Amino acid sequence: MPAFLPPTLVPILLLVASNIFMTFAWYGHLKHKSAPLIIAILASWGIALFEYCLAVPANRFGSAVYSTAQLKTIQEVITLLVFAGFSVLWLKEPLGWNHLVGFAFIAFGAFFIFHKW
């Protein structure tokens, strides 16, 4: 783990990077629907390899400072943020108020995961 970064930040940065790769692996091909499906599958699989190279260390380092439930929650919130940006910027699909309300409910759930009762 890099010594110059706080141990709570390292897994978050790695999860952001891994989610960018995974979002492109899962949804990037939708912008190129004319490409053969096998090409989309192989390209997605290749991109996902880089995602795993970031996600595994993120979870390994993160387990030193977060519970597994907290790590999963962080990953899900990051996934939504990355996907929202990807959807708007790459796929040119707008986000509606209903998406924002749904994301807010998920963020509210994250509050309960991290709150000490």
Rank of each mutant, 00 (worst) to 15 (best):
L91D: 01
A69W: 08
P57C: 07
F50I: 12
V56I: 15
F21M: 02
I47P: 03
G102R: 07
K92P: 02
V16T: 10
L30A: 13
L91R: 04
L89S: 07
F86S: 06
P94T: 15
A40M: 09
P36E: 09
A64T: 09
F112M: 09
V88A: 07
I12A: 09
L100S: 02
L30D: 13
A58N: 02
F86R: 00
I39A: 12
L71F: 05
P6V: 10
W26I: 12
G96P: 06
H115I: 13
P6H: 15
N19M: 10
V101F: 09
N98T: 08
M22V: 14
S34L: 05
V56T: 11
Y66A: 00
I74K: 02
G102M: 04
A48Y: 15
L91P: 00
G109T: 14
A58I: 01
C53Q: 07
A43Q: 12
V56Q: 06
K92Y: 05
A48L: 09
T73M: 11
A40L: 10
I74N: 00
F50Y: 09
E51N: 15
K33D: 10
L9V: 11
F86N: 01
S34N: 11
L42H: 11
I38E: 04
L100W: 14
G46W: 11
I41Y: 11
W117A: 14
L49V: 15
S67K: 03
A64M: 08
W45S: 15
E93R: 10
W97Q: 05
S34R: 05
T73S: 14
S18Q: 01
Q70R: 02
T73K: 00
M22F: 15
F83R: 07
P7R: 01
T79G: 05
H29F: 10
W90E: 10
Y52M: 13
I20D: 10
I20A: 12
I47C: 03
G102N: 08
T79W: 12
V16N: 05
C53M: 15
G62Q: 00
V56R: 02
L14I: 06
T23V: 12
F86C: 00
H99C: 04
I113T: 12
R60A: 03
H99L: 11
W97K: 11
Y27P: 05
V88W: 10
L91S: 04
F103Q: 04
I106A: 08
L81V: 15
L89G: 04
K31A: 15
F105C: 08
L30Y: 11
W97Y: 13
P7H: 03
F103V: 14
F112G: 01
L100P: 01
W97A: 12
W97E: 04
L81C: 14
A55Y: 09
L81S: 13
I41P: 03
P2G: 00
V82S: 03
S67W: 02
A43V: 15
E51D: 14
V82G: 06
F108M: 10
S34K: 13
Q75P: 00
M22Q: 12
G62R: 03
F4W: 14
V101P: 03
F112Q: 07
L14C: 04
Q75D: 14
I78V: 12
P57D: 06
I47Q: 01
A40E: 08
I106R: 05
E93K: 15
E93S: 13
L13G: 10
A55G: 01
E76K: 09
W117M: 10
